[in-house]
Design a binder for these strands. Sequence first.
DNA 1: ACTTAATGCAACTGAAAGGTTGCATTAAGT
DNA 2: ACTTAATGCAACCTTTCAGTTGCATTAAGT
Lengths: 104, 104
Amino acid sequence: MEVVEVFRALGDPVRLEMVRRLAAGEPHTISTVSSQLNITRQGARKHLQVLVDAKIIALNPHGRDTEVRLLRDTLDQGKAFIANLELQWDKRLVALRTFVERRQ
Amino acid sequence: MEVVEVFRALGDPVRLEMVRRLAAGEPHTISTVSSQLNITRQGARKHLQVLVDAKIIALNPHGRDTEVRLLRDTLDQGKAFIANLELQWDKRLVALRTFVERRQ
DNA sequence: ACTTAATGCAACTGAAAGGTTGCATTAAGT
DNA sequence: ACTTAATGCAACCTTTCAGTTGCATTAAGT
């Protein structure tokens, strides 16, 4: 799973709203997700596919309609990626501070 | 600061690599950032502007060259946003579990 | 069986994005 | 003063993207 794809998928207002609503709860199908946003079902479907490709959601067909399920792990890896960036950043600051203190 | 803009800015391989390198350390100017990636300076400059607009970095001119500085807080808010999504998701799962258990 | 609701797939359009080249400007170093 | 390095700004091109319309398919309910 490419973390850049995850961020890319979240970096659209419509898709981010989709994810928000999915996280908020209540079971969703492609139709219910689509009808809540102000776009056509086919338009929403494209957005959902982007989220599927990024592995942020999964689609499970059940007879006539297909369930939209949020994949928590992928979101978590996005979070972890940022946390790791911050960690490196912090380490660098500490190193810099040490360097400055040594020179005093 | 719009979190969707933050994700959008991070959702490009070139920009994500820029952020990675900035987090890794060493002071950077627009030139040094550009020369590390396989694009022209002007191309890189556009990417940097996207990061500036998302408030992920700030540019500080110092005489002839301009320093590229990472803004930790913005990254942190991206992380916090995901954390909040997960929190809601978890709460929903707990509620569902309680519901199921009550019916047994 | 028939109708209706949920979905898939494809083609098209306009706008935005990534990247380039070219030129002007300004600051440093000798 | 002159040269060089770092930058800004604008025009341009190509590709991607968001969104639409249209049509076909399949499953549920009556």
